[in-house]
Write a protein that binds this DNA or RNA. Structure first.
Lengths: 204, 204, 204, 204
DNA sequence: TATGAATGAGTATTCATTCAT
DNA sequence: GATGAATGAATACTCATTCAT
């Protein structure tokens, strides 16, 4: 059992296939719809094989979440650093981060749904990862603080502001994912409009 | 079949129990997780009994949706009329509607999830009700138009603005539902802050 | 229980509807496919109502069989008497009976299937009716005897001959019912050809 | 699914048990009566196990049909070749084929019922096999043609004649199967008598 | 006379999972 | 490293039937 756990971290081609299949299934279906057999069918292996790489279904989902969060955080951080490197001031860096949040959702709808929409009720040990979620939130807070420090924002409660921004971002992303096709013309307009409006509201 | 259809609309104690059980199950689970058997267990009847009152699972969900939308629209309309009766001007009426949207979600988390979060992929004939969803959206648009007409808002694209507001509301509501307990102290503060910020951003 | 049995014989409009519905369902489906609920749906009554007229499903089938046999025998006898009245000689009377056997099957495919094709395994008390089946067989035997008596046939074993004829008739009918649509052009040709061939074979 | 398909053709002890159980159940019951659970009970495995070997119920029936037809055609062809090898002339070869048709039914009542009596309404993709049925019919036609060519038969319509013979054979077989025990003494007599009579009727 | 209410058993099928190889 | 074999429990849904009214 120990050695299974150990190997669980090892990278492996089939591990990848499995979690990619699981992610794709999550895209169009809910947690209950993603079955070990469907994953197995998709990668053309027997269901038993999956148990060679993952202890059970929950372990698959857990890894999916971990990967998703890693990807998510990486996407945000990368864009932030790029923005900084471009010499943007704190406010525009913050906006860039916001846009890349939404972009992540649009580019990885499967991951986004699992990370932020799907209710993973059945999966108990998954709560551990909850703190990955707060890392993204902390990035937001940090960005806000910097904007405040640099005088672009006048804010009393950073935490509150971050929650508010986050909810706006999540609302926008999930709206775009569930009710609009991928080709919605006014998509970018809606994104820009919402973000600009909100930040204008935040003031100076 | 005929005789079921005939009184499908009739009220009945057990019908109520069934859809309430279904609604509660939807609160913490997805469509696939809500099973006829679980509903039956919850109301302490045999699964067969449910089929006495509903043609199939989809019919249960359909009624749940219809009820949910009715409740939702009613809540919005009632608060709007109250606000008008109180002599509030268009802008504050609009804000009141926004707050009652969020309040509906917080008071009826089960309904909110089914109406606006859950992926009802399996349920085909449910698309019909989709247009109930747009009724809520139209209320928003109408409120915006009125605020524009009365000079409280300067807006170019009503549709875009409504989508933007809607996404903010949905984001806020689902954030509150998934990540905060019902007793979150700063809840109302977050709601007010977000709405005020956004409308300030919309300008004049 | 006694009085139920008694009333079971009474004619009644709904009784008729029930067994007609059952018969129609038997046409296109097997015994297992004919359910009390489907019968009830078809006549637009509740399933419970059927139990007012019949003790159980088996009783419905039993009556269906009785009626079917009555109809069957009546059809045969009527044509036989008509043929006799027309002054046909015994041989042609016999052929007429044969043709009316086939015609019954083609005109009442539902009844024919229940009477002669469907395996009524589940229905125990139905064996009683078995002797109705032999009545039809006896008509055949009687017809043969008469043809022999009148010198149209030279036959050693009447029983054997009757069985032989019967099997030919059943084969022809069920072939026509299962593999040909109702509009098969060469239908009558096949019937005539087979009967004529067979009787020619029986000889003088 | 893939891996099941891949070895669907492979022989396997349990596959055999399953289709034999299904065949036996078909003997005394209709399509609707033969359930996966009953099959499972009969072979003393769990119902789930059957799905390890067959995709679904229809696949079981399909294989049953394929096997049945293969056995049927083989039986007919073998006897025909034997008869030819024995130097019988075309007429007697034809009669031999006829007798082996009936014999097949008597020796394999389960198969016979599925192939020629049971209404497989529920099973859609099964129609494909329908053309196996016509192969048997074609053997009959070919035999007739040969008998005509060799001057044993004078016939105008081969197709009609074949249908006529076929219906006689089917009638005889199903009569023997449903209404007589396997030990009926006069069985062979009835078979011979009917065939002889019919062919005598066909003439020269 | 008719039916609404209720259910236990049965229908096909899918699920996650274990075990021996 | 991979899988065939096997299953108990669950899925939605249908069945014949009973009972009280």
């Amino acid at each position: 059992m120990k050695h299974i756990k150990r190997r669980e971290r090892e990278s492996h081609e089939i591990r990848r296939k499995i979690i990619e299949a699981a992610r794709d299934l999550f895209l169009s279906h809910g947690y209950g719809e993603v079955s070990m057999r469907k994953i197995a069918d998709r990668i053309e292996y027997s269901p038993t094989t999956i148990y060679h790489y993952f202890e059970n279904k929950e372990a698959v989902v857990r890894e999916l979440l971990e990967e998703g969060y890693a990807l998510f955080l990486q996407a945000l951080q990368q864009r932030e650093q790029e923005a900084r490197a471009e010499g943007l001031h704190a406010m525009d860096v913050l906006k860039t981060v916001c846009k890349s949040y939404i972009l992540f959702g649009l580019e990885h709808p499967g991951y986004y749904n699992i990370l932020f929409t799907t209710n993973l009720e059945g999966a108990s040990s998954i709560a551990i990862i909850e703190n990955d979620r707060s890392k993204g939130f902390e990035m937001l807070e940090a960005g806000i603080r910097k904007a405040v420090d640099e005088g672009y924002l006048t804010i009393t409660d950073e935490r509150l502001t971050a929650q508010s921004i986050w909810s706006m971002l999540h609302g926008l992303t999930s709206l775009l994912l569930s009710f609009y096709g991928p080709d919605m013309e006014s998509r970018d307009e809606l994104i820009s409009f919402t973000i600009e409006t909100f930040f204008r509201g935040l003031g100076r």
